[in-house]
Design a protein around this nucleic acid. Structure first.
Length: 269
DNA sequence: CCCGTGCCCTGGCGGC
DNA sequence: TGCCGCCAGGGCACGG
């Protein structure tokens, strides 16, 4: 499940590989991925050149001449660059360039989305306006104020992209463990000092993971076969029954907000 | 507004 | 081996 580090890895790879490519054609093999008028989407993209690729939270933003293609990979979305290879059954969108190469969007679960905005409004319209700051840019006072106004579990708040953006299920578990905070704690019970700790932990976890090219577990691999290495650094996520790296207590697995959640019941309160 | 629930989707897995 | 049912989950729609 691509979170900020995986999306950033994809962004860097694709920007290096695709900057300057001019779009010759677009084919929607499974049109529902595109949350726009399909004909207009295709017509607008054709003839435009990829200038650069930006990222905000877990969204990729392909900056073109007049428009911006906004992509969310959700659970299993990934990109491949191919030329004449036959279409894979899970490739749902093909963006074909004048060079003959094509960017193929591959998504087994079909949860990913594509939106189109103009260069002038992509940062001041949804979905980007719904995003809170990323951990390294969070104003801790503001963050703590938001937590104080919420009764939902702290894990749910950390997964809420309007409160803080970039974290998903893996990195939230790692963040909470490093701060010694139980995922079930009500958000409004989190102290200011704990808010500071959470932001520090989240920032550190995302930075380390980004430096290692993200996390590769289950079916997720980065585009172009790039493989992350942060899975070797995980302390609790996917570690059910294994000893806590701090105290040795077996890691427990539970459900929080409907998500598989890993916790050391001895270290996290 | 706030919060919880169900939905989207399919490969993989456990049970028989 | 085959089939059934369930699970995984980010964001969003919807209802209380």
């Amino acid at each position: 499940m691509p979170e900020l580090p995986e999306v950033e890895t994809v962004r860097r790879t694709l920007e290096y590989a695709l900057s300057g490519e001019k779009i010759k054609d677009v084919v929607l093999h499974y049109p529902k991925i595109v949350r726009e008028d399909h004909e207009g989407f295709i017509h607008t993209l054709i003839g435009q050149t990829i200038r650069r690729i930006e990222r905000k939270g877990k969204y990729l933003m392909f900056i073109l001449d007049t428009h911006v293609l906004i992509v969310h990979l959700r659970m299993e979305g990934k990109f491949f660059i191919k030329t004449n290879e036959p279409l894979d059954k899970h490739e749902h969108v093909s963006i074909i360039f004048e060079s003959g190469r094509a960017l193929r969007y591959h998504d087994v679960r079909k949860f990913g989305t594509m939106d189109l905005r103009t260069i002038d409004n992509y940062l001041i319209t949804e979905p980007i306006t719904l995003l809170g700051r990323e951990p390294e840019h969070v104003d801790v006072l503001e963050f703590h104020q938001k937590l104080k106004s919420k009764s939902i579990e702290i894990k749910a708040s950390l997964l809420d992209q309007t409160i803080i953006s970039g974290l998903g299920n893996i990195y939230v578990d790692e963040t909470l463990f490093r701060s010694g905070i139980h995922p079930r704690r009500p958000s409004n019970s989190i102290t200011f000092d704990e808010s500071v700790s959470l932001i520090e932990s989240a920032t550190l976890v995302l930075k380390k993971a980004t430096d290692l090219g993200g996390t590769t577990i289950r079916s997720y691999t980065s585009s172009l076969g790039v493989t992350g290495r942060f899975q070797n650094e995980l302390m609790v996520h996917m570690k059910k029954g294994e000893p806590c790296p701090i105290c040795g207590t077996p890691i427990m697995k539970m459900k929080v907000k409907g998500r598989g959640t890993y916790v050391c019941e001895n270290c996290q309160h």
